[in-house]
Amino acid sequence: MESAILCRKMKKTYGSFTLDIEDFKVATGTVHGLIGANGSGKTTTIKLLLGLLFPDSGELSVLGSSRIGNEAETRQHIGFIVDDASVPSLVTANELAAVLRRCYQHWDQGQYEMYLRQFQIDPKKQYRKYSKGMKVKLQLAVALSHHASLLILDEPTSGLDPLARDEIISILSEFSKDENHTILISSHITSDLEKLCDYVTFLEEGCIRFTEEKDELLETYRLGIVSHQMVADIDSDSIIAKREGSFQVELLLRTEDVPSFLESRRLSLEELIIFLSKGRSAV
C-alpha cells in the first residue's frame, strides 16, 4: 500500500472550529510530522483518523479502510496515543496487559514487559498514581507492543523532560527503520519533529499551509540578519518575512534569492515555522 493515510476534501465542523483538509497523504514507510499551534486542528485530524470523530464530508482512508471508526479489524494494526482517550485510572500495567492480550491478535507480552522495564514503570502500580510522563510512556509501550504497522501519535512528548523526550524519539526512530512501519506524529515541540520526520505538514487554523519533505524545506530558506539600513539594499520581492528587532532585522529569504554580500544561515524547523506563521509580517 502506497499511502498509509489519505485524506481528500475532508471537512469537520464543531463549535466555532472548522477543519478543512484539501489533500493530505502519509506515505507508507515514512515518518510524517504534523505541526501547528494549539487549536490548529492537529488533535481533530488525529481523532478523525482513529474513528473517534466522523468527518462531515470528504474522503478518508487509513490503511486502506475508509470507515476506520467502524472497522475494528484495521485498528489491530494501529498503535495510538490521543488526548482524552486513556487507560482506566484504577488499573495496573499488568492488568492492562491481561485485557489487551485478549484484544490485540498480535500482542507481544515480552516486548511490553521490556518497555515497562526500560521506562521503569511499576507493573503493579495503579495508573492514576503515575506521573504525567509515565502515563505517556505506558501508552507508548502499549502502542509498540502489538506489532502495529502504523503509529498515530498525538503530542506523545508534551509534558516530558528533555531526557525522556530524547528516549522516546530514539524509540520511534528505531521503529521507523522498518520500511513497512509508518508514523504520523503531531507535536508543537518542533525540535523533536525535526529529528524524526521525513515529511512535515503545517496546520494553521484548520487548514494545511504546506506539506514538504523536511530536509528540502530546511534547504529552501535562509535567514539573513542585517542592520536596519541594509534592509533597503535587499530586493524587497525576495524578502518572504521579516522580524524587526531593536538592534537588527531578521529576514527570511529563499536560498536562491540570497544576495552574495549577505551572510546567511539555515533555520531550524522551529524558527522557520515561527516566520511562516500568520502572525509574522510578510513584506
Binding site: 482513529l50 474513528g51 473517534l52 490521543v82 482524552d84 482517550a85 487507560v87 482506566p88 484484544c103
Partner: peptide, 12 residues
C-alpha cells in the same frame, strides 16, 4: 477516565 474513547480506538 477516557476509557470509552480508548476502547473505541482499540480493535473493539
Amino acid at each position: 477516565d477516557g476509557w470509552e474513547a480508548y476502547a473505541c480506538a482499540l480493535p473493539f
